[in-house]
Simulated scan of single mutants.
Amino acid sequence: MDEPYVAELVGLLVEVTGEEPAAIGPHTRLDADLLLESVELARLNDLVVRRHGDGADIVRHVATLSLDELIELTVGDLARHVATHAGVPAR
């Protein structure tokens, strides 16, 4: 279920960060591995929301995480979030 979303997020992260696609997979951590900056997260979020609606808002999701959860957040975790919330109106 999450695989198409992982592939999509990998493509979007390549676009946002300039990383090589081979360097990004479902277990890639946004903070520790990609060193994703807040501006890049905001850009990624904008692209995801445009494609999947406000319910898939990544920034809103990240804001609910503890520091430890945020540090360990992976592409696969985001894919599950998007898969679960795609097309769902924001609350």
Rank of each mutant, 00 (worst) to 15 (best):
V82K: 00
A63K: 06
D54N: 06
A79P: 04
E37H: 10
R80A: 02
L12M: 14
L70F: 07
D31A: 08
H61Q: 04
D68I: 06
V49C: 01
L12W: 13
D2R: 03
A90E: 12
L35F: 09
V49P: 02
D31R: 10
A42V: 10
N45W: 05
A32D: 09
V39E: 01
V14Q: 13
L36M: 06
P89M: 10
R51D: 07
G18C: 05
P26Y: 09
A42D: 03
G87K: 00
A42E: 02
L34C: 11
G53L: 07
E19D: 04
G55K: 00
E40N: 02
E8T: 11
D68F: 10
L34W: 00
H61L: 14
H81L: 11
H81T: 13
D77Q: 13
V10A: 15
A83L: 10
A32M: 14
E3H: 02
R60M: 15
R91S: 08
H85Y: 12
D68M: 10
R50A: 04
D2A: 04
H52R: 00
R51V: 06
H81N: 12
T74L: 00
T84Y: 03
E15Q: 03
L73P: 04
L12N: 13
R50D: 09
L78T: 00
G18I: 09
A90S: 08
D57V: 11
H61N: 07
E72H: 04
L70P: 04
V16L: 03
A90T: 15
H27P: 12
A90F: 12
D77Y: 06
A83Y: 01
V48A: 12
H27W: 05
P21R: 08
V16R: 09
G11Q: 10
I24H: 07
S66A: 13
V16F: 01
A86Q: 11
M1T: 14
E3N: 07
D46C: 06
A42C: 13
V49K: 00
G25L: 02
L35H: 06
E8L: 08
